[in-house]
């Protein structure tokens, strides 16, 4: 079955592009989740949907509209959540739902040619050759920057005041994180859809943090989990003709629940051993 699946070039393209996106998103996720920025990923994907809808309405090249809009929004959202804790949350929710609403209006105004479902939940059929090349290139660049600036991102995430006091330009690394997140969301949206892409960012980090206790091992486990869940979800969706994006998210969910249970068992066992 696997070899039959891999005989379709568009499936291989989507699989490779998706793997790159998954690894990039999972690495960014570790820092975003630890900095309590997970909602930003969610907000950005909705903004991305709004931008996609408007580009469909105006018959513009989707990437050319979505990429700049999402990058600008990333900086705006980051600025808002940095300012005030409680106000930031509601601002992000307002921006998300407004963008979603504008997107839905634009898509329905654009007419029958636009597939709302593919925008919201992704579709591997919509991944063109160019799309997958862009997705792979952007994700590879993200993974590369993450590795090069790994220690700086770690330090900025763990203790921004200390990092800044010792001469690390924390502002620059926070901006880098925002920029990379925006790019990964835009390129990943075609496969996973706007409503599901943020799970690629949040799930791997959340799962890795249940199982690991060091930053390095959390990062590696997150990337590994992302690869595993993507391949498993992809194969399941092919085997049972299920929607790809939703299948991948469902696999993440099962792994998350298993990891939570494993963690509770470990804690219980430890308590029993040391009363």
């Amino acid at each position: 079955m696997i070899s039959e699946m891999l005989s379709y070039p568009f499936i291989v393209r989507a699989l490779l592009a998706g793997l790159f996106v998954s690894v990039a998103a999972s690495l960014l996720g570790v820092s975003l989740v630890l900095r309590r920025f997970s909602m930003i990923g969610d907000g950005l994907s909705h903004v991305g949907f709004g931008a996609l809808g408007i580009s469909a309405l105006l018959s513009l090249q989707p990437m050319a509209v979505t990429i700049p809009v999402v990058i600008v929004s990333a900086f705006v959202l980051l600025h808002i959540s940095g300012k005030s804790r409680s106000g930031g949350d509601s601002a992000i929710a307002l921006i998300s739902s407004s963008a979603l609403a504008l997107g839905v209006i634009a898509v329905s105004a654009a007419g029958v040619n636009t597939d709302l479902n593919a925008f919201l939940f992704g579709s591997i059929l919509s991944v063109s050759r160019t799309d997958s090349l862009i997705a792979a290139a952007v994700s590879a660049a993200t993974i590369f920057s993450y590795l090069v600036f790994y220690h700086q991102i770690y330090s900025t995430t763990f203790d921004p005041s200390f990092a800044k006091a010792t001469g690390i330009s924390t502002g620059r690394y926070t901006s880098l994180l925002a920029l990379l997140t925006a790019l990964v969301i835009v390129v990943g949206m075609r496969i996973l859809g706007s409503l599901l892409i943020s799970s690629l960012i949040i799930f791997p980090a959340a799962i890795a943090m249940k199982l690991m206790r060091r930053y390095a091992t959390v990062s590696i486990a997150a990337a590994a989990e992302a690869v595993l869940a993507f391949i498993a979800g992809f194969v399941l969706s092919y085997a049972f003709s299920l929607p790809t994006g939703a299948s991948i998210v469902a696999v993440h969910m099962v792994i998350y629940l298993t990891a939570s249970a494993a963690r509770s068992i470990i804690i219980l066992a430890r308590e029993r051993r040391a009363p």
Binding site: L34, H151, Q152, Y154, S155, T157, F158, D159, S161, F162, A163, A165, T166, G167, I168, M209, M212, R213, R214, Y215, A216, T217, V218
Partner: peptide, 27 residues
């Protein structure tokens, strides 16, 4: 600089060595 511990995320996954080494990152 030794900041107030309250400013540091207590639930952050990190080893003692990772934390210590990050002190010389800016230098």
């Amino acid at each position: 600089y030794l900041p107030q511990v309250s400013g540091i995320q207590r639930d952050f996954p990190s080893s003692v060595m990772e934390v210590t080494l990050s002190g010389c990152l800016g230098r």
